[in-house]
Amino acid sequence: MTKGLATHWRLMPQRYNLIGTHCKNCKSKFFPQRKICPKCRRTGSIEEFKFSGKGEIYSYTTVCAPPQGFEYQAPYVLAIVKMKEGPFITAQIVDCKPEEIEIGKKVETVFRKVIADGSSGIIRYGYKFKLRD
């Protein structure tokens, strides 16, 4: 068993296709998925919900001191993106220079390698964002 393998596998729908959840009772949307609506709690009714992958930059930074596994990607832009549907998510913004990033700029998801377990372990893919043309 390789560390992180099953962890990633069970999150693939979320990480590949932004499958979150929403509460049918209060219409709140959640990404990542929540099983309990913080507003309605037990009276809530949770169902899967697919996010569009479109949003805008809410805050950003350039990571110059990367953690293990991200060494050669640095410097990379990390942002909190406000998704069109409401929730915020943390993700890298790719194919851009740090100076191109501004709060409010429109972004959309791309499918990328996020981290690989060395050169012999599994590759974990998922969403990142790019600036919209």
Partner: peptide
């Protein structure tokens, strides 16, 4: 290709 691109990510973008 960027560091985080490979034949799979390119295939996915083209397929989408």
């Amino acid at each position: 290709p960027n560091l985080d691109e490979d034949a799979a990510t390119i295939a996915v973008e083209a397929a989408r």
